[in-house]
């Protein structure tokens, strides 16, 4: 028996919007720790890891570990039927091949339940080792989204370089080139507007912009984003979900042949 009640149901709607472009089908794993997902895109270039900790739910009952295969486009269709202020409850019985999403309006005058068929998905779970990154950049998520969008109108790839001067995003295409430098800026009114660079050593990596643009679908989940870079590892782009967990995207770099 599984029953997860999330008062801030809009979070779940935003989570689906953040991952459905990258991944078509995925297993949602439910355990005592929380509600999680790990999935790669179809070309195995990017990976998304989601965690919503059990403590973040108003009610969290998960009698035993359960993995539920879902088509994310279909989940998104269901959740789009929930109002933005609705309380969302996810329910499933042991051994059932369906999951139910229940939507309650804030004043309890409307209750809807949507039952969705589950599917069998073969997916390999990858071990992601803890790593010390050469550089971690924290910046406003809207600013990062703007940079990725702007650069993708010029080129297909971005070189992200971190030095003590700041973080530089560079691209080149048929019509020309573009460089955007963001300097560390801690002297802002609100902490979420700051750009903070923690650098152990300079690092420069090249990535496909279309994946980064896809990651920025998570922008509504968090005011800030952190970008962790090391020369021999995929970049980690993390959006924290307040009090609950995170959506982390991993993107394999483009490397010299």
């Amino acid at each position: 028996m599984l029953e997860l009640r999330l008062v801030q149901g809009s979070l779940l709607k935003k989570v689906l919007e953040a991952i459905k472009e990258l991944v078509t089908d995925a297993n949602f794993d439910c355990s005592a720790t929380g509600f999680s997902l790990q999935a790669m895109d179809s070309s195995h270039v990017a990976l998304v890891a989601l965690l919503l900790r059990s403590e973040g739910f108003e009610h969290y009952r998960c009698d035993r570990n359960l993995s539920m295969g879902m088509n994310l486009g279909n989940v998104s269709k269901m959740l789009r039927c929930a109002g933005s202020d609705d309380i969302i409850t996810i329910k499933a019985d042991d051994g059932s091949d369906t999951v139910t999403f229940m939507f309650e309006s804030p004043n309890q005058d409307k209750i809807a339940d949507f039952e969705m068929k589950l599917m069998d998905i073969d997916s390999e779970h990858l071990g992601i080792p803890d790593a010390e990154y050469q550089a971690i950049v924290r910046m406003p998520s809207g600013e990062f989204a703007r940079i990725c969008k702007d650069l993708s109108s010029i080129g297909d790839t971005v070189i992200i370089s971190v030095t003590k001067e700041g973080v530089k995003f560079s691209t080149a295409g048929d019509i020309g080139t573009a460089n955007i430098v963001c300097r560390q800026n801690k002297t802002v009114d609100k902490p979420e507007e700051a750009t903070v660079i923690e650098m152990q050593e300079p690092v420069s990596l090249t990535f496909a912009l279309r994946y980064l643009n896809s990651f920025t679908k998570a922008t509504p989940l968090s005011e800030t984003v952190s970008i962790s870079l090391s020369s021999d590892l995929p970049v980690v782009v993390e959006y924290k979900i307040a009090d609950m967990g995170y959506v982390r995207y991993y993107l394999a770099p483009k490397i010299e042949e």
Partner: peptide, 14 residues
Amino acid sequence: VRKQSQITTFFSPG
């Protein structure tokens, strides 16, 4: 010329 690497090059099943 740079080639796109895959996540599975860096992370292994487990």
